[in-house]
Amino acid sequence: MSYMSEEEYRYLVARLRRDLEYYRREDIRAFDAFCEWLNYIGFGWLTVGLRIGNSVWRGVRGLWRRMFG
């Protein structure tokens, strides 16, 4: 492995933090889109809980996680 300076390592870590933020943004957007689609196909009742954070919302979140990781 070639030499890596401390500055380069710090940048690498900062860059990964930034990418993880982008990943979270992607995940939130994709999940919102999934809920919008559920509503479109007639399962909107599942997403009603999004507003109040009840167990059905957790169910949709869990479903999303299990399917798309």
Binding site: D19, Y22, R29, A30, W37
Partner: peptide, 22 residues
């Protein structure tokens, strides 16, 4: 790539962007 991919997901139609993540 992650930044680029997030931008693509955000540009896709709201009802369809979840498929790209999948």
């Amino acid at each position: 790539l992650q930044e680029l991919f997030t931008a693509m997901v955000e540009a896709a139609p709201p009802r369809r962007s979840w498929i790209f993540s999948a």
